[in-house]
Nucleic acid binder design. Sequence first.
DNA 1: TCTGGGGTCCTAGGACCC
DNA 2: TCTGGGGTCCTAGGACCC
Length: 407
Amino acid sequence: MSAACILHADLDAFFASVEQRDDPALRGRPVLVGGGVVLAASYEARACGVRSAMGGGKARRLCPQAIVVPPRFSAYVQASKDVFAIFAETAPTVEAVSIDEAFLDVRGLERIGGTPEAIARRLRRTVRAQVGLPISVGVASTKHLAKVASNAAKPDGLLAIAPGAELAFLHPLPVGRLWGVGPATETRLREHGIVTVGQLAGLPEGVLVTILGRAAGRKLHAISHNRDPRRVRAGHTRRSIGSQSALGSRRRTPEELDAVAIALVDRVTRRLRKGGRVGRTVVLRLRFGDFTRATRSKTLPRPTAATAPVLVTLRALLAAERETIRRRGITLLGISITNLSRSSDAGVQLELAVDGQPPPALDATMDAIRDRYGAGALQRATLLGGRERTSAWLMPGDGPDGLPESR
DNA sequence: TCTGGGGTCCTAGGACCC
DNA sequence: TCTGGGGTCCTAGGACCC
């Protein structure tokens, strides 16, 4: 049995707690952050049944005495940085999960830091003293169990699952408490008479795969037996960058939609450039008048972070949906860019004259590239040009195994 | 309850290639 | 006339998370 050495630390009702910290008049009272949709609800508000992502109307009906405050994202970002600085002093390996939670690997710290549980207790005290926020911590032998434990410890608690006690803790829980089991999976499992994690654990993996598909079936089978080999890993590479805008129910003209599209592309490509990233696939996200959703995507020949090619692509995708939008109405327009790589891996476009030779001039182009950049530089070249001139796209990180992975 | 914004991963079919 | 197996990439959609 492996030692319980993974901490999952999760700030409680994060946005709402920052508001209560910064305004004493809010302490001990139900607080909702965000009016249209609840971004965060304090535990006093949750006692009335309010949940985050709930519509503001329903939240106010459930909790008429709640105080509604607008979000202050810069304050949350600063609070998050302060807390992550404490994480970094607590453990050598910290894996951020989101703005308000992280895994900490405290293996091998026994002599200087004490037991994992002692480290967790000290972490909670330090965050409370230095940042003024409540934080819950779960301690367990696997990431998944640490996550479930921190959830069970909330609010403002600590729960350490002793080695050997894992399944006794896990098996009585309803399946919905597992990380990755949402409403759809919960319903499917219930249709098969499975309500608790223990019942889940009693099923052969093959049966679960039949019910839920290969990946989900295997994963749930493993975690129901507390098998989770994932290590705590620092760093994390973003796979997509996106932006979206809710449009309300009013009809929109194509001109209005185009203005929204321009703003979205501008926002997203700026973020790409700021992060030194380029992307190849442009995804259009639509939500229609009846709130059903659709996505349309187009993969470009080369990755880019430039506004123009992304806008051209998004406009083309949008134009193809124009009739559908006219018929059904549109309530959300979004874009996301995926297939990301680093700008430094994106290569340079080479335009090389090859003495008017007709294709196949690619060999000559590749030879010219090798002459110029060295034999190792060229992994793959794509013929882009015409008869008299040949262009090649040089991708330094683009090996035979496909597109460059970001490092 | 009429519903924000930002993400991740998985599945499945078709195109295309060897 | 009938018709393999394997792999990658692209597209679209679904589920889930914070």
